[in-house]
Amino acid sequence: MSDPMSAPILRFDGVSRDFSAQNGFFGRKRTMRAVDGVTLDIPRGKVTGVVGESGCGKSTLARLALHLLKPSIGHVYFEGNDLAGLKPAALRRQRRHMQMVFQDPYSSINPRFSIRDAVMEPFQVHGIRHTPAEGKERAARLLEMAGLDPQLAEHYPHQLSGGQKQRVGIARALALEPNLIVLDEPTASLDVSIQAQIIALLADLKSRLGLTYLFISHDLGLVRYFCDRIVVMYLGAAVEILPSTDAPHRHPYTRTLMESAFLPDPERRRAVTRLTGEIPSAFERPPGCAFATRCSFASGRCYAEKPVLLTTGRHAVACHHPLD
């Protein structure tokens, strides 16, 4: 009998998500595919990073993970349960075990709430009651876990710095003792020194609490430092899954993306492979590989046949001509 703890905590099975938009005031309705046929396992107890250019579908994938958005096609399984198949009450119970830390700490906290109210909000949403004394003690403990002075519980968001607000967001995410936390660009709006503190806090919490992270970021250096494995997305599709941060890049796009990361050591700087051509429109996807128009290795097959994410050799890559 298989060990349930060895199974992935989260699984995307052929997931696509479409959005409709009007092409001008009198134009026809068009459909954009933000996430395109993603099949992906998120292993328990690991940090899985998702990277790619702006508009590649990273944040949409994060919201699909928590069923904040419903898939247009495919299924999302959390701890073996198809989230789309759960009734509202069951879905609410399931969401106690999966939480999110948002990108913008300034807008993710209700400005009318005190910090204690903000941290205790998840308990109210799930109908978990505390006496005033219990609520004060629980909020203080959560703030301490996030590296904040419990006396800040009486303050309001406008009295806190951006880094402190993000710590409040982390404390709130920890309130219901989740197993999975989705981190959607959690350090993007913070100063570099504060980013380092937040990442150190997240690493410590993961170690102490046995958490699993799905880490969405555009910062390649941060992803390499913090994550155990990396999923590379291009125009809504997963094009490569690196099993470790030092695994060789097999997709031409991954190579270009990783080479573009700045290295502060002059002796380690590399020549960057420049990309030419335009990213295809998400409203009018090409029939073959979406990267073909920008790839120096593209063949006629690439323009006609869409590559499938397959494990060939060392790890999974969606490319007709993977690099050695």
Rank of each mutant, 00 (worst) to 15 (best):
A318M: 05
L183S: 03
L190A: 11
Q99V: 01
T254Q: 06
E79P: 12
L68D: 14
I279V: 15
T254E: 05
L309F: 00
G236C: 07
E177G: 04
P280L: 01
R129I: 13
E278Q: 14
R314F: 06
E284W: 02
R112Q: 05
S72P: 14
A90K: 10
V182L: 05
F262R: 11
R167A: 01
P186C: 01
D3F: 00
Q94N: 14
L152D: 15
V47S: 07
P150C: 09
E53I: 09
R116Y: 07
I181E: 09
P132V: 06
Q94S: 15
L205E: 12
C302T: 11
F283H: 08
L183R: 04
A261Y: 04
G300V: 12
A247N: 05
S296P: 02
R141S: 13
G127R: 00
H315E: 11
R224M: 06
P280S: 02
L201M: 06
Y106A: 14
F25T: 12
R11P: 02
R269M: 03
P88W: 02
R229A: 11
P243K: 04
R269V: 07
D149N: 12
F123L: 14
P132S: 02
Q22K: 12
V50A: 06
V317A: 08
S107Q: 07
R229F: 04
F19I: 11
T39S: 15
G85L: 05
A21R: 10
A188Y: 00
S72F: 02
V232K: 03
S20R: 04
S296T: 15
V15K: 11
R129M: 12
